[in-house]
Design a protein around this nucleic acid. Sequence first.
DNA 1: ATTGACTATGACACCGATGTCATGACATCC
DNA 2: GGATGTCATGACATCGGTGTCATAGTCAAT
Lengths: 363, 363
Amino acid sequence: MATIYDVARQAGVSPKTVSRVLNRDAPVSDKTKEAVTLAMDALGYVPSHAARSIKSNKSGLIGLITGAISNADEAANHAGLPELFIVQGAQAVIERSRKTLLISDTGGRLDRVPDLVRTFQEHRVEGILYVADYHKPLELTLPGRGIPKVLVNCFDDIGTPAVVPDDEGGQYALTKAVLSEGHRSVAYMTLAPTQEATKLRLRGYRRALAEAGIAFNDDLVQAADLFGSPGEHQLIWDALDKFFAGNSRPTAIFCGNDRLAMAVYGILRRRGISVPEDVSVVGYDDHRLISETLYPALTTAELPYSAMGARAAQTLLELLAGQTEAPNAPIRISGQIRLRASLIAPRTQDRDNIINLKGRSEI
Amino acid sequence: MATIYDVARQAGVSPKTVSRVLNRDAPVSDKTKEAVTLAMDALGYVPSHAARSIKSNKSGLIGLITGAISNADEAANHAGLPELFIVQGAQAVIERSRKTLLISDTGGRLDRVPDLVRTFQEHRVEGILYVADYHKPLELTLPGRGIPKVLVNCFDDIGTPAVVPDDEGGQYALTKAVLSEGHRSVAYMTLAPTQEATKLRLRGYRRALAEAGIAFNDDLVQAADLFGSPGEHQLIWDALDKFFAGNSRPTAIFCGNDRLAMAVYGILRRRGISVPEDVSVVGYDDHRLISETLYPALTTAELPYSAMGARAAQTLLELLAGQTEAPNAPIRISGQIRLRASLIAPRTQDRDNIINLKGRSEI
DNA sequence: ATTGACTATGACACCGATGTCATGACATCC
DNA sequence: GGATGTCATGACATCGGTGTCATAGTCAAT
């Protein structure tokens, strides 16, 4: 690979002058400039990032750690929206700021994080983004003292800046949307109860019910998350059984994510229950591959991964520029509600029955 | 950030000795080694990749260009398996060889490729992987003369090494699997006819039919690919109409990908047709998020993206090491057939009817 | 004509590593 | 005991750029 010295020799000038042409940081006569440009083209010269960064002590690199890439194959044990969307949002912002994103992958193994950070340090990254696969507390202490960091989709208790989804607000808005259609008995098939998202969203669900004056019914909340294992479909059958066994037969069902909703579609139909005529189904994530393709298309709440990635990157860049103080609480990002065909108003007789609350046999 | 000089001063030795401790390339007394190690820890010293690479003229970097990251949000106009799985396969291999993968994203805009390659050149990448979002001819001439490259999921006509899926073989195997269940009238709802995959897979489909002595029936092949647009569901309705209108009512339906199969599930059921009792449904891709979650679970052919990425990375590394000549034809990677609940043997009366081939009204 | 301001350019040092070569202290061998 | 070899270490140059400073030339103002 040609160096600045080769270009200088070819153009008959000093390396420093070539540098000036490259960086436009000092006047160079048109004639010289042209000779240099010609020489650069002839030699296919591209300046060396390494040489520059060693001198300037700035790498222009931002490191990003994720499990997205490897996890993708394990189909994500949680199988919500892939973290990849977060990476995408971050990438766009980083690139616009003329820095380069160095993406590293844990391969699903947290114990590899120190190695990855070490590699980042060798490359003298200016900041680090750490992306979790779903909303959760950070499971480890990040090494790399002194390097600014922003957590995405996770948070810790030592004040590291963090960007997380507004799960409570999302489920609250989603529930309000369903209630405003006239539904009064709304079941909720959640993800694992230990998940941060489940706790927060349940809070939003209850808040919306309370505001509408509807009593919370414990029987209408069932967990059914067990990705990929053959037992999951059974879990969903069971949850649906419980929903429809009680007196307050639901006219709409929330699902912890769109994937769960996809399975629910199939099972409901197998049981002779039509979506949305007999029961409305609502997901979470707006995983468009699913939500737009399912028939009928799925009403769901956007999990704003792309926006979260963008916001995290932006926060990191501002920290690097010294423009901001680190935020003292996680930044919560809200998503849109996507109304699609799977949600319609409940049948009138259903409403009546709900009001009577008795004398109903299983469908 | 501490430098090797800081460490040397702290340990009371020369920088060169610190270098020797780092690289273990010359004997150092135990006492000195310990002093140096202590100093490195105390200062949190990490060697500078830039300084090393400038001296050694080796970057240890491999560049990868993809649209996966940004495309993901556009939900991939084709919406097959995300290229991301290719990246994952490549990442694993590259990392094992102790090199670092530099991932860049086109953001879906091909005209940005030259910029990305330029950035790669500044970083002095040793090789480049170019990943296409689906099997297709390469749409541009890659810049970066002299840098070894391997194409993944695409190919050109100037002999650049390439790794592609074995579409013909995949559909052939899938068709044989369906025929061996006893099906004799098998419809095929394809992706866009212009797509490489469609052409190749049709070839495999026809070959399997021919070998089984079944005449190819043009009415049983319909294209229905139009991702995300609201018109797609209508397209699928129409295709199904045509399948079921003719005399040779199919007992199994191939879909161009798993996403299409997902939509077909919903529409078939809406029409009162049960999967798999009335008709078997088969996808392509083994997009596990879909294939394992759908109810009933989907029979499909694996699109071996991860293996393709791995193979491409391995090929590139071998080229760099001078171990191999560039292959003179694209390397075709085969995937597994995944048999799941959506495929069962056809009803006996269906077989009989097929044999009679007449007097059948629409279902 | 002299001065000062400005333009265009080059010499040289330096960034943080490592390769080359030199050197001093011992150990080994005939 | 002197020649030779090995070990442990350091001085110095070098990689490919850029920052600092110096210098020569041009032009307008005094």
